[in-house]
Each structure stands twice: as C-alpha cells, then as structure tokens.
C-alpha cells in the first residue's frame, strides 16, 4: 500500500469539493424551477384578474355580463361543502385511525385493511364521483345537493385523515400509554385523556391538508351534478324562504343546489367571451388564496399545540 503525497490528497479533496458544488448548484436550480413555476402561475393569475378583484366580485352572483359577475354562490358553496366534508370525514377518519392503532389486534384482516386504505388514497377522484352519484344522489336520494358533494369529498379525503391520525398516534411514545394504563386506566380513558389530545396537532394538520385538497376538486363534484350557473344562496337557518314565507330549518341548507369555486372557474374558461377569462383568473387567485390560508392555518395550529406537548 502506498502513501499519498500531500499534493495528491489536495487534488483528491479538490475533485470531491467540485462535485459538492455541482450538486449544490443542481439542487438550487431544481428548487428555483419549481418555485418559479408556482410564482409565475399565481402572479400571472393575479395580473390577469386583478381588475376584477374588488368587493363586488365577492358579493355578486355570476351573471351573463362578465364585468358584473361575482363568485358569491361559488365561495359560499365551497365553504359549506367543506363544512359537510369536515363534519363527516373528521369523526369517521379519526375514529378509524384510533381503532386501528389502539384497539385492533394485528392480524391478516388488519393488514388487508391497511393496504386498502393506502390504495383508497390513490383512487382517481372521478371514481368517487361515480360512486357518489349512484349512492348518495340516487340510492339515498340526497339529490344534487351540498350534502351529496360534502359526503363525496369526505370519502375522498378519508384515507388522508386516517393515515395522518395513525401517524400522529404512532409518534406518541409507548411509555406514555404504559404510564396511563399502569394507574388502571381503560383503553378509552387512555385515548380520551392522552392519545387524542397529544395526537391532535398531527390530526388537524392531516384534516386541513385533506380539506385543502378537497376544496380544489372538480371532477367528482361535476359528476354528481353541481350546477354551473346559480344565482341564489342556500337557505340561511331560521329565515323566511321562498314565496310561502316558511322559516328554513337548521339544516335545510344541506339539501340545497350549489356550485363551488373550481366549477365556477371551469365554467368561465369555457365561455367564448374573453372577458370571462379575467373572471376565471381572479377566481383562480381567490381559490389559491383559500388553499394557502388553509395550509397556513394548519402550520399555525400545529405550532401552537406542539408548544405544550413535549416528551
């Protein structure tokens, strides 16, 4: 074996460092490309749509005249659909996740369930739309309503909620669970006092990421038959509706026809009049804003809740 001279050692290091630099440059370029595309898209939408971004845009219904069109029914529809989606997906997903992590004994049945939950996350959203059309719209008779749309999107994000719940639970050290069981707690007491509160930051993050995905979904909502043009809002609880003047019930709004942001955008882009493209860009920017603020909310909640939890 021969010993390297200092000159050889330096040459070797120089070659290694050059590769370091090369790789670093490559990484920065890739990152820049990704970020630039996003900024260009958002910036482009903003510039095209900025002239329509005023208060009226949010308070007006869609209209045949582009300049007077707004997204009132779309953003209200999106929010209400998200409300139903969250109300359905969170209890179902969290309960399923807790059951799988804390109660179910490992067996081939739970293995199959586990694999299928992962598979469910990969099912194309249009398939959920077809399923919902058959089950919610026709079999259950929910019609083309906010309820049908909310439940469809709940199915879509259920795997995300289940997986994030399980991951959040798994990050809780076993010694915490043992500490609780050791004083004589039941499984449910352990879940209620410890597992659920400590997993909450992770669960919330998963829920919001799921909702952020759901709010942008178009295909399944079109499949179940959301309207593309709608000039009224769902009935507000306990207010007079229609001509008979009867008061709306607390949950009447869930059966109302609706439209959502992505459908409104889709509708505007398919119009021949180029003036509507401005509306589409403005609405696209608003939708981006909704998604980003949901993500920001997730990050903030996680940060706040984790401050009080450390092992």
């Amino acid at each position: 074996m021969h010993t390297m001279t200092p000159g050889q050692i330096r040459a070797l290091i120089a070659r290694g460092k050059m590769r370091d630099t090369l790789f670093q440059a490559l990484g920065i370029i890739c990152l820049a490309i990704g970020l630039m595309v996003i900024f260009l898209l958002v910036g482009d939408m903003l510039m095209r749509g900025v002239e329509r971004l005023n208060i009226e845009f949010f308070t007006e219904f869609a209209s045949r005249r582009a300049a007077q069109s707004g997204i009132l029914s779309a953003w209200v529809g999106s929010l209400l659909v998200m409300l139903v989606t969250g109300a359905a997906a969170v209890p179902l997903g969290v309960a399923a996740g807790i059951y799988l992590e804390e109660y179910a004994r490992r067996s081939w049945v739970t293995d199959i369930i586990e694999i299928n939950i992962t598979n469910l996350a990969a099912v194309p959203s249009i398939v959920y739309g077809l399923l919902a059309l058959g089950i919610f719209v026709y079999t259950f008779g929910f019609g083309q309503s906010i309820l049908s749309a909310g439940l469809t999107l709940a199915l879509l994000i259920l795997p995300i909620v289940i997986v994030s719940t399980r991951e959040a639970i798994r990050s809780i050290p076993a010694m915490i669970r043992e500490g609780s069981m050791a004083v004589g707690a039941t499984r449910w007491q352990t879940c209620r006092y410890h597992i659920i509160p400590y997993a909450m930051p992770g669960i919330l993050t998963g829920v919001i990421i799921g909702l952020a995905r759901a709010i942008g979904e178009t295909a399944p909502i079109i499949t179940i038959g959301a309207l593309t043009f709608i000039a009224f809002l769902p009935p507000v609880p306990f207010t007079a509706t229609g001509m008979d003047g009867a008061s709306a019930g607390l949950f009447d709004w869930v059966m109302s026809p609706f439209t959502v942001m992505p459908i409104q955008i889709f509708n505007w882009t398919s119009r021949p009049d180029p003036a509507f493209e401005v509306n589409a860009a403005a609405a696209g920017f608003v939708l981006m804003g909704m998604v980003l603020s949901m993500n920001a909310l997730a990050i903030w909640l996680r940060y706040r809740m984790r401050k009080t939890i450390k092992w």
Binding site: P173, E178, G179, S180, V183, G184, Y193, H194, Y198, K310
Partner: peptide, 24 residues
C-alpha cells in the same frame, strides 16, 4: 402501582399528572 425506568410524566400540568389515577 408502577414507576418506570425513564420518568414518563404526561405532558400535562403537575396537578393533572398526580390527579390522573383518581380521575380514572
């Protein structure tokens, strides 16, 4: 009762840690 190898207090208040067995 049991005391573990590594201290495993719950990420709750001192009071709630001690009161937990009673609450259960």
């Amino acid at each position: 009762g049991m005391v573990f190898q590594k201290p495993n207090p719950f990420p709750k208040s001192i009071f709630e840690n001690v009161a937990y067995g009673l609450r259960v």
